[in-house]
Amino acid sequence: MRDVGRWGIDLTMPQSLLLALHLRDAAGLTPPTSPILPDLPPLDPPARSLRAAGADVAGLEVAARQWAAWWVEHFPGGPDALTSILPPRYPGLTGRPELRGLAELGMDDAVTWCARAREVERRVVARAPSALFETNLVTAVERELGWRIRPFSLRVVVLPVAGLHHWDVVGQAVISLGLRADRDAYLLWLREQLLAIGRTRITRSEEQHG
């Protein structure tokens, strides 16, 4: 969390979403997209296939729809979302036997993979733009707008999927870890977010006083 008093940027990589994405890729699921579920690229690092592990994977179309329903219910992640997908009870998979069966087959691999993904995230954060870069960017955007941006908190979900991508998921900012790792691409994306925040807040202020 970058917090400099009047604004904050919170970049988070929810464990529940990591486990879910690993399940998607390991099982080879192709879930239907929706406003809450964009067409997310494969994981990076990639997940090991359940087929490669010798698992008997069946009912994939049904499981893919169940997976999409779970995502819509639990995005953007959090304690309840994580609890819902964990053994031994898998409470969020109740009534979704095809998906639960895949989760039971792949959970050990998923947990191991998540540890690897966290290590990649740690290295990215170590060399990513610091709070000073973001502070300077806020100042530059305020100069461009001609007014000071009102206090704000920007929460960003980071997903370790391949490529440099960003999405607006019903008002929730989502970026790939690759975008976070690319200083220029990240700051360019962040600049657009700050411009939008600054313009939206001044417009609302004008409406309230109009």
Rank of each mutant, 00 (worst) to 15 (best):
M1E: 07
G8R: 14
T12F: 01
M13S: 11
M13I: 01
S16G: 10
S16Q: 06
A20F: 03
A20C: 05
H22R: 02
P31E: 04
P35H: 13
P35Y: 12
P38R: 10
P41L: 08
L43D: 04
P46T: 08
A47R: 03
R48K: 11
S49F: 01
A58Y: 10
G59T: 03
L60Q: 11
V62H: 03
A69I: 02
W71V: 07
P87E: 04
Y90M: 02
G95N: 06
R96G: 05
R96L: 05
P97Q: 10
A103W: 05
A103V: 06
G106T: 03
M107A: 01
D108H: 10
D109Y: 06
A110S: 12
E119C: 00
E121N: 04
A126I: 07
T135L: 14
T139K: 11
E142Q: 13
R143A: 13
E144A: 14
P151V: 12
S153P: 00
S153D: 11
L154Q: 13
V156R: 00
V157P: 05
V161D: 08
W167L: 09
V169L: 11
G171E: 12
A173C: 09
I175S: 09
I175F: 10
S176T: 15
D182N: 15
A185S: 15
L187H: 04
W189R: 02
L190K: 05
A196F: 07
G198P: 08
I202H: 12
T203A: 15
E207K: 09
G210W: 08
